[in-house]
Amino acid sequence: MKSFRRLVYPYLLWAIVFIVLPMLMIVFYAFTTEGNSVMTINFTLDNFFRFFSDSIFINVLIRSLKLAIITTIICIFIGYPSAYFMAKLKPNSQGLMVLLITLPMWINMLVRTYAWRGLLLESGLSPEIKVYIGMIYNFLPFMILQIYTSLSKLDQSLITAAHDLGCDNKMAFLKVTLPLSIPGIISGITLVFLPAVSSFFIPKLLGGGSYVLVGNLVENYFVTTGDWNFGSAISLIMTIVILISMYFTRKFDYSKEDR
């Protein structure tokens, strides 16, 4: 057993260099001012004050959260029935459906979004709607596959038992199928909501310059203006918002299981 542990070292190294160090650097940048040198480090909270005192930034954050939440909800409402339908098919057809759903993912997400830009270019839709279409299109498969996995694992004899105990189809669904597929919905939410909050190229490509989200702000401050300190502060705020939402999602999941 012990010798197997060494196999983790390459990944550990990778994680330290490419995950932990950058994170620490972001925290460091967020709490300092521009123009640090090795000798003088100026700690400050100015970056955060700047963000929260400007209503434009606050609105962008709220808009991002709204976009992510609505995208997630629409994905659940489209994804659940599709997954339910898939799980009812014959095993062969199920495999085909999973293939069809994963097929677009073989192509890079960026490429697909460019394709949508071309399609929607002359549609006359508002930038907001275009962004929603792009988001839902890109994230829906994750939701479907998660829910499908939990539904296909569902023991059919439980449904039979529910019928036996007096449930019609609707009640059997509400009392047995739905509660038992919650874990699938939760992991679907995690896979859709998190990338949706921080996505920046979908709004950039489909919304033009007019639909700015947190992700775009971060990109902007890092790449265009070169203000890494403020960019880091925004990243940190976004990370904290994500952590809080994760906490509530998990809590909802556990409260179901503990009961």
Binding site: D155, S157, L158, T160, A161, A162, H163, D164, L165, G166, C167, D168, V176, P179, L180, K256, E257, R259
Partner: peptide, 22 residues
Amino acid sequence: VPAYKRPINTVFQRYALFPHLN
């Protein structure tokens, strides 16, 4: 008469207890 309206109940081979309920 559908199953849920029959005055009959079943003990299933592998019990089919609901795992999300105590």
